[in-house]
């Protein structure tokens, strides 16, 4: 058990050191975005990598988290710390209602079902303008305060987000290495076989779906209180596809894969600014090349290469 914890302890140290060492708010903000994206990727990875269920509509839960806290704090004047469980609970409730019929679908049809759900939620964000501010967006989301600590400072916010990330990593790690985790992998490898050995597949799939919605909503909450502004296009179909891409590029069924995928997809556009007009072409090419040469994602692929290189020596 203790050996299991070493990577997480090291990782926590690295995060703390990065926060201590970095002073430029731009780099801190970039790292914070990576943290938020990691939460998104982690949530979807639980669903895709471990339970083998696709979702092309996860940005909807991300949006529900963000709009949930925005509505609660701005319209209803609720404290953000109460809005957090509120927004997450709302996303979980929606996930439960949508999940029950949708998760009966499989493969591309599940993809289509979740995609349709994501589109409908996005249209709601845009059209229900009296509540959500419509296409122009939602302004005036308050910053987070906890007693004397103000999270409007970039550095404090960095620690807050990465605190949540580390907590989620450990939570996921425990779930994966529990009975539930084994049952999930059984579903991934063969749903009927899993059912035959006594796994309640429908219930378990729903639970993971709800869990991954909760992670996405948490990310949405953190995004809203970081930028203080949200608008529908941050939570559209393209955003959903980006989350899926993070998971697959990083490596499915790997907690660290989520981190790597999220980092790459956050940093890549920043680096590619130098290409200006060619940015899109290069970005698309890099995605394709990674997938062509490392079909198992960056984490697994790089490890494999490392091992092969060692054997060949």
């Amino acid at each position: 058990m203790t050996r299991d914890r070493i990577p997480y302890a090291v990782f926590t140290l690295i995060v703390a050191a990065a926060g201590w060492y970095t002073d430029n708010p731009y780099y801190l903000q970039t790292l914070t975005f990576i943290g938020i994206n990691t939460l998104l990727a982690l949530g979807l990875n639980m669903l895709m990598g471990y339970a083998g269920q696709i979702s092309l509509g996860h940005a909807a839960f991300y949006g529900i988290g963000a709009y949930g806290t925005a509505i609660l704090t701005v319209h209803w004047h609720v404290s953000p710390w109460l809005a957090l469980p509120g927004a997450v609970a709302a996303a979980m409730l929606v996930a439960c209602i949508v999940g029950i019929p949708t998760l009966k679908l499989s493969g591309y049809y599940l993809g289509m079902g979740t995609l349709g759900f994501g589109m409908i939620v996005n249209i709601l964000f845009r059209e229900w303008s009296s509540v959500t501010g419509g296409a122009s967006g939602f302004v005036g989301i308050p910053s987070l305060e906890l007693g004397p600590i103000s999270f409007s400072s970039t550095k404090n916010y960095f620690y807050l987000v990465w605190g949540f990330v580390i907590f989620s990593f450990i939570l996921c790690h425990r779930i994966i290495n529990s009975r539930v985790g084994r049952a999930l992998r059984a579903i991934h490898d063969g749903e009927k076989a899993a059912a035959a050995v006594g796994v309640d597949t429908a219930k378990l799939k729903l639970q993971v779906f709800i869990l991954s919605a909760a992670f996405s909503a948490l990310a949405g909450f953190l995004y809203a209180h970081m930028v203080f502004f949200i608008s529908p296009e941050s939570f559209d179909f393209i955003a959903s596809i980006r989350i899926v891409t993070m998971v697959v590029i990083g490596g499915m069924a790997s907690v660290w894969g989520s981190l790597i995928g999220a980092s790459l997809l956050t940093l890549l556009p920043e680096w590619l600014h130098a290409f200006s007009e060619f940015e899109m072409v290069v970005y698309g090419l890099i995605l394709m090349i990674i997938m062509i040469f490392l079909p198992k994602g960056l984490t697994r692929g790089l490890l494999d290469m490392f091992e092969r290189a060692r054997k060949n020596k």
Binding site: I241, M252, Y283, G284, M291, P295
Partner: peptide, 28 residues
């Protein structure tokens, strides 16, 4: 065709990459 032992999801992400690439190419 260059992908060895392809899983569907990998091919799908390749097509996502291709769509971004083609859009960029169209813009150029």
């Amino acid at each position: 065709r260059t992908v060895k032992n392809p899983e569907h999801i990998v091919l799908i992400i390749i097509t996502v990459g291709a769509s971004i690439f083609l859009r960029g190419l169209g813009m150029l």
